[in-house]
Nucleic acid binder design. Structure first.
Lengths: 253, 253
DNA sequence: CGGTCATGCCTGTATATACAGGTCGTGGCC
DNA sequence: GGCCACGACCTGTATATACAGGCATGACCG
């Protein structure tokens, strides 16, 4: 079969769908060995490169695990691993058609205490840079960003005008993000958050602790605090069929 | 160049690294056109299939955007798109070496109100299944799960013993998850949460609203509530260099 | 009996080639 | 001047082929 009839799905896609269907039907279970490339060549009448592409892409998507000499297997953690996206604050605000402004509260160099040193993966006592910035959406405070920056990676960090460029934008120019880590908590606002975000003591706040890496080095860590009544994190996979979402009304018993 | 000297990186990886480096150095900016496959063939002395693979994989990774007839371009949202993983509750608890138990509070069929109907993408008034389950970690309530299930996708949902299998596990067996959506909020606990999770009125809680799709259909939506003092969401990219993380101590001005 | 090596299976990488189809500029025709 | 056909260029898909290298099994030899 040299070419493919017009209107049909590409061969490699048909193979992928076939394997995914077998997994969905339970005929292939986590840990099971799936067809080898040569078996797919016989079964589908395609070339090995096409079978290779189907299996390789399913590996990238986390569905399969491959090992040279052994074979191709169904991944075990499949159903518990979700892929998410999170937008950054400035783009999110401008995406809503609102105006983003930032207020620089603190910009300083300080010696890293034990916690910051561990987070940045450097020795305690090394001088790091710290900024405290309040992000506003149409003049309403929406995020307090307390950030520590590794001076080895971004020595000129403090030279920026943070009312014009967000730390995130600058740092990802200096050092491309290759990995990151997030912790999300619901907290009571402390005095600083209450003052800078203008929230009441009984207003729950979201706090995100984020570390980002560039290669082997930790570039920065940040504590991002949001007023709980004005902000929620959104995270979705690619390929959501259609239609926007809406939070349901409270409907507790 | 037919083959590659032993010990060197594969050609397609060298091309990928080269392009990523150019982006990191700022020589290629979001929206810029990158080399076409034929240009890479000339520049690197590889075949077009190898160049194609390098560009295609960078597209899968979200670095590049490709369009037949037009060319290949640097993605614009690159720095704002993060890939995350989130574990599910039962695995998370057993991963900590603790015991997971579940208490079924409510299991019923009810007519979908407007909010639920929109969330499940069905007509209002259709009978859906609803469960309310409390998940406990070593007998401490850690999550309240209020879930609505699309009867078209999983008609036998209520037949399960939810003290033995989590809704998540069952549903992903019935219908493989192909897409999902999360909203994370910090909220004050309402009466139900306070009663079932045993939290005080001034204790902020995390609430996650999650919808999952299987193909075109919404399988289920769930409101997951966590006590803020006992729980945080963790989300990290693949390929974090090493070393576990630790939340830093509070260090506000 | 046990260690070593050969063999076969499988994946990883790479090339050369071919055709299909989208996009856009250019030049000719009306 | 405006419209349309054509060609240049680009990506998408697919094939046949080749060699390198990981892994397990089993045969052979000490």
């Amino acid at each position: 079969m040299k070419t493919r009839p017009v209107g049909e799905a590409p061969h490699y896609l048909r193979i992928k769908e076939n394997i995914i269907a077998l997994i969905a039907e339970g005929k292939l279970r986590p840990g099971d060995r799936v067809y080898s490339e040569s078996e797919l060549v016989s079964a589908f009448g395609v070339s090995r490169m096409t079978a290779n592409r189907a299996l390789r892409e399913l590996m990238f998507e986390g569905v399969l695990t491959r090992s040279a000499g052994l074979g191709t297997f169904v991944s075990s953690q499949r159903q518990d691993v979700d892929l998410l996206q999170i937008r950054n604050i400035a783009e999110e605000i401008s995406g809503r058609g609102h105006t983003h402004t930032a207020r620089l509260v603190v910009a300083e160099r300080i010696a890293a205490d034990a916690g910051v040193a561990q987070s940045l993966d450097i020795a305690a006592g090394i001088e790091v840079m710290r900024t405290l910035i309040v992000h506003l959406e149409d003049d309403q405070p929406i995020q307090m960003e307390e950030r520590y920056v590794n001076p080895v990676v971004a020595p000129d960090y403090l030279a920026n005008d943070f009312t014009r460029i967000t730390p995130n934008e600058y740092l990802s120019q200096v050092a491309p993000i290759t990995a990151f880590e997030h912790f999300v908590e619901a907290i009571r606002p402390d005095a600083t958050i209450r003052r800078l975000l203008g929230v009441k003591p009984d207003q729950p706040c979201l706090r995100v602790f984020r570390r980002t890496w560039s290669g082997e080095a930790v570039v920065t860590c940040a504590l991002l605090s949001y007023p709980g009544d004005k902000y929620r994190l959104e995270a979705r996979s690619r390929d959501i069929p259609a239609k926007p979402a809406r939070l349901p009304q409270e409907s507790m018993p």
